[in-house]
Design a protein around this nucleic acid. Sequence first.
DNA 1: CAGCATCCCCGATGATACTG
DNA 2: CAGTATCATCGGGGATGCTG
Lengths: 96, 96
Amino acid sequence: MLVRALANAGGEVRFAELQRRAPGISRKMLAQTLRELEYDGLVARRVEPTIPPAVHYSLTELGRTLIAPLDALREWAETHMVTVDEHRKRISAPLV
Amino acid sequence: MLVRALANAGGEVRFAELQRRAPGISRKMLAQTLRELEYDGLVARRVEPTIPPAVHYSLTELGRTLIAPLDALREWAETHMVTVDEHRKRISAPLV
DNA sequence: CAGCATCCCCGATGATACTG
DNA sequence: CAGTATCATCGGGGATGCTG
């Protein structure tokens, strides 16, 4: 997730760099999500008025409070995905 | 969320009861989601072969391990939603 | 570089009706 | 009671192209 990508970066990250850190996300969704997160006050956006412009994103203090609960979830997923997969196979009734 | 509704219930809950505990969710989505959760091994389903049938749902042990991280997130939301709302108003550029 | 603007499509979900 | 089947919609998101 974006918040994790921004957290990993530590400080500010530029748009393109963020895209590399969030593999699979399209430019459109990246831009859109960043706008939402900025709107919510979770992400700060800083524009350097050069040509071409350089835009830097970072987590706000509020955004950083989200890291822990989010990581808890991610860790749950990592720890239990194997178990879940095994259970799915055991059922062997491929749902849908 | 369903997991929370099941957690609240403590033990087994029947379909209709679950629907009451998860307001806003349609019968279709409830049934579908329950099947997925069962498939993943997070939810156990027990059918009493009476007429009409009585189906009982409950969290498995695996399902219960998900409660904590999920609640952490929910609590984050409850604690910070006010802040987020305030920030949105301060921006006053109604996004979209 | 960092986005918008468009067009387009498919899948997720709701509404409704039927059943063992 | 506890679903399933069918139909219709609607909007999220991808692809592409343009621009300050």
